[in-house]
Write a protein that binds this DNA or RNA. Structure first.
Length: 854
RNA sequence: GCCCGUGUGGCGGAAUGGUAGACGCUACAGACUUAAAAUCUGUUGUCCUUUCGGGCGUGGGGGUUCGAGUCCCUCCACGGGCACCA
């Protein structure tokens, strides 16, 4: 086939894309529709306004937009909102660095990113947009805080933070680098501060059990949450100490009690403090161990260390005393902050025992006497437990402990309460006042929102709200005397724990949790975001939903029905000989195919694909791509080839391929238009009037509709695109017959545009209007396929001998087994391989396979 | 350290336990062109073979099965999360 010059001119996206974006916006094409149709709520995890949209965002939002457009076409009322997770640390860092106010910095970023998002043609209902730093939003969040507070779900307790002794401020884990403060370089210490906590542990069981009902969640995310909640059954045991105190330990393996050789308590255990106060050496030792970050991976990796307190406790069942150690591997937050140690059957206990030459007494028989041993076996050395299995022994000893009043069976969760206090400015202020007379007093609703003061200075030291000249000084709402405000703000995870509820309510309502609207739209039918949020954000959002339901504010208990976690966007990295990262633009391929640094001519080390990040200089700017290739090409590319839940390898060549495909499709449209195809030539297709070849083409197209539909339903955009490409190739192969089959090609092209529209909406909208179809393709329905067209009557059946493929035969699906086996045996190659060997077995699976075992 | 994933041609990937490599990228060849680009057509896992065809192949090792990329065990490599980054 040949195309004339006018058809060869490439598709002018730079005119077409802005044209339709403006049209959609002006006509509010994606305003949330409220009809009697079924609803569908599509939500992508909202964006942190860091400054610029990156390709990772583009991929996330493209997936969401494809779902939204597809579901709209399928007839759902779709809620597809957009917003900004706008509080957080980077705004304050920018304030320090560039002297810009966090608010100005944030809103400016939002403006920039909004324009970027709009240039990608996402079908959002912009009317519902908001930022979490909007006074209206965080004011309402304070209302929610008060409701939870009244419900008894919020309390204050002391908890450890990373403390920078030079800057006098609390550091986030990411601000601690090699145990030192990122700005000051000072050795970080752990410090106890009074902080607010949400009682997420009240919901531990429900959070765990409801996971089983979340059929639309990936199994790995559910597993991670289960492990995080970490329900374990065990028992508490009281040990009496020779100083008169009692130490309660928790153990999930009480059956190993007879192998216990020492007790270990946490650095923060009340007893440890008591001892430290009386013993300078121990005090010093504890403060030495307290250096460094509070993060778990740091704690786990550090060497196990401890100190003998000199105290001993009595073993509850044996006539012996065990020494009590203060040890850095015992966590105050889990269990009771104290353990009995059985080094023969626990790795940590073992390492510690070896280091401090403590005895190791095995009580469970292992096959080859290995120590430490963690498997099942028979108890020995254990008095009344002797001869029992681990499970039996556990049951028995818990009974025994209970009977003798030494402790009781208990269930502990690894899940800890959620600390929400942040010693920072750019967050939601906590609506609490401390009064010397009335104590802790919540603000009254009429005093909300409690706004952040505008004039604030950032020195990098201390807490900005605390240092503000007058903000914290107020009159007590109860007695009117001088009082002070809480100067901590809320963790930004709080902001993102209910934003999906706020989206349900239109801007006209002051009640941000308007029950009718929340009830109409919740739950979120499809939630899409990175797997890095698998635990914290998703768990907090689930907790919040339950807590708000218990406060009577909403009536759902689970926020997200289906969850999709997309992979990261990765790209190649380059480093020079000094190990410095290089931009791709600084690198060139020479004649030998080696990569060299342009500036120096020296060889460059080509690293493996890594997550795109500014520091590795392997980011790609979406603006540049949109300008040179268009939004459709970018959208198409980020969901092509790689399944959406896997990491996506960026490549310029791949992007080029997507761009070529868009032009190929456009040439197809223009060619067919020139051959007379248009909306007015669409008519019902009478199969019998077509040649056999055209019948086949039409049937294959119905198969394509089915394949693409199935792929969209299973979020396999990459497969949908492969099927569409295949179909386009197929249409190209018969293009010279288009003139004789105008109606057929009209029908096919109409549906092809509709199949492609969720992915590349601009070109499809343009083609839709060019062919003269009514309304927008974005408002049109999804094409349907006919079951009777995709049924096949014959099949190409593989014939195996001993499980190896030796040939194939074409058979009718309803042919008898006998006929097929006879035919299979006649295949030349099969006969040759079998020879005169006797056939031991004939496997026949209808429509699938024939296998001769000889 | 603990928890969760991933591993298939030169590359991204496809494959209800049933013909491994669909679709795309790259590379190569041809057509068109004064030429280039673009476009179109073809080839492209690997080894043996003129052809027909055959051997080997889904990170390594083992197992279940008539048959394993797919299920089980084990090992290796890489990535994500770990509670104050979002």
């Amino acid at each position: 086939m040949s195309l004339d010059i006018s058809e060869i001119a490439s598709y002018n996206f730079s005119v077409v894309e802005p044209k339709w974006q403006k049209f959609w916006l002006d006509n509010q094409s994606f305003k949330t529709r409220k009809s009697n149709n079924k609803k569908y709520y599509v939500l992508e995890m909202f964006m942190y306004p860091s400054g610029k949209v990156h390709i990772g965002h583009v991929r996330n939002y493209t997936i969401g937009d494809i779902v939204a457009r597809y579901k709209r076409a399928c007839g759902f009322d779709v809620l597809h909102p957009v917003g900004w997770d706008a509080f957080g640390l980077p705004a304050e860092n920018a304030a320090l660095k560039q002297k810009s106010h966090p608010r100005d910095w944030t809103y400016k970023n939002i403006e920039t990113m909004k324009n970027q998002i709009r240039s990608l043609g996402f079908s959002y209902d912009w009317e519902r947009e908001f930022a979490t730093c909007d006074e209206e939003y965080y004011g309402f969040q304070q209302k929610i805080f008060l409701a939870l507070y009244k419900k008894g779900l919020i309390y204050r307790k002391k908890s450890e933070v990373n403390w920078d002794p030079v800057d006098n401020c609390v550091l986030a884990n990411e601000q601690v680098i090699d145990g030192k403060g990122w700005r000051s370089g000072a050795l970080v210490e752990k410090k106890m501060l009074s902080q607010w906590f949400f009682k997420i542990t009240n919901y531990a069981n429900e959070l765990l059990e409801e996971l089983d009902n979340l059929k639309g969640w990936p199994e790995n995310v559910k597993t991670m949450q289960r492990n995080w909640i970490g329900k374990s059954e065990g028992c508490s045991i009281d040990f009496s100490c020779d100083n008169g105190d009692q130490i309660t330990v928790f153990s999930t393996r009480p059956e190993t009690l007879f192998g216990a050789t020492y007790l270990a308590i946490s650095l923060d255990h009340p007893l440890a403090k008591k001892i430290a106060d009386a013993n300078e050496k121990i005090k010093e030792f504890i403060s030495e161990l307290k250096k460094g970050s509070v993060s778990q991976q740091v704690l786990d990796k550090q060497e196990k260390q401890g100190i003998d307190t000199g105290l001993t406790v009595k073993h509850p069942f044996l006539d012996k005393r065990l020494p009590v150690y203060i040890a850095n591997f015992v966590l105050m937050d889990y269990g009771t902050g104290a353990i009995f140690a059985t080094p023969a059957h626990d790795e940590r206990d073992y390492d510690f025992a070896v280091k401090y030459s403590l005895p190791i007494i095995p009580v469970i028989k292992s096959e080859n006497g290995e120590v430490p041993y963690f498997g099942d076996g028979t108890l020995f050395n254990s008095k009344f437990l002797n001869g029992l299995s681990v499970i039996e022994a556990r049951k028995k000893i818990i009974e025994e402990i209970d009977k003798r009043n030494l402790g009781k069976k208990e269930i502990f969760f690894k899940l800890r309460d959620w600390g929400v206090s942040r010693q920072r400015y750019w967050g939601c202020p906590i609506p609490i006042v401390y009064c010397p007379h009335c104590g802790t007093v919540p603000l009254e609703e009429k005093d909300l929102p409690l706004k952040l003061p505008a004039n604030v200075s950032f020195s990098g030291t201390g807490n900005p709200l605390d240092q503000h000249p007058h903000w914290k000084h107020v009159k007590c709402p109860v007695c009117g005397n001088n009082a002070t405000r809480e100067t901590d703000t809320l963790d930004t995870f709080v902001d993102s724990s209910w934003y999906f509820l706020r989206f349900c309510v239109g801007k006209e309502s002051k009640d941000l949790l308007d029950k009718n609207e929340v009830c109409r739209w919740m739950t979120v039918d499809q939630y899409i975001g990175g797997v890095e949020h698998a635990i914290l954000h998703l768990l907090y959002a689930r907790f919040f939903t339950k807590a708000l339901a218990d406060c009577g504010l909403i009536n759902v208990r689970e926020p997200f029905k289906n969850l999709f976690t997309q992979g990261m966007v990765c790209s190649v990295t380059y480093k020079n000989e000094q190990g410095e990262w290089l931009f791709p633009s600084e690198v060139q391929k020479n004649e030998k195919g080696e990569f060299i640094e342009i500036a120096t001519g020296k060889k460059v080390i080509v690293g493996r694909l890594e997550k795109m990040s500014k520091s590795k200089k392997n980011v790609v700017d979406p603006d540049v791509i949109v300008k040179t290739y268009g939004a459709d090409a970018l959208r198409l590319f980020v969901v092509s080839d790689t399944p959406a839940d896997r990491d996506f390898p960026w490549s310029d060549e791949g992007l080029d391929g997507s761009w070529r495909f868009i032009n190929r499709v456009w040439r197809l449209f223009v060619h067919l238009k020139n051959k007379g195809v248009s909306a007015s030539t669409v008519q019902d297709i009478d199969l019998s009037s077509l040649t056999e070849e055209m019948q086949d083409i039409y049937k294959r197209f119905h198969q394509t509709i089915k394949d693409v539909t199935d792929s969209f339903e299973s979020q396999s955009m990459n497969k949908a695109i492969a099927y569409i490409r295949e179909s386009v190739n197929c249409i190209y192969s018969v293009l010279d017959k288009s003139e004789d089959n105008v109606s057929l090609f009209s029908v096919i092209i109409r549906d092809l545009i509709r199949l492609l529209a969720p992915i590349t909406p601009h070109i499809c909208e343009e083609a839709w209007s060019m062919f003269g179809f009514k309304n927008l393709v974005s408002e049109n329905e999804w094409p349907r396929f006919r079951e009777d067209y995709i049924k096949v009557s014959t099949v190409n059946l593989p014939i195996q001998v001993n499980g190896k493929l030796r040939g194939t035969i074409d058979v009718s699906l309803d042919a008898s087994e006998e006929d097929i086996l006879r035919k299979a045996m006649e295949v030349n190659n099969v006969r040759k391989i079998i020879g005169d060997k006797p056939i031991r077995k004939k496997i026949f699976i209808k429509g699938k396979i024939v296998n001769f075992v000889v």
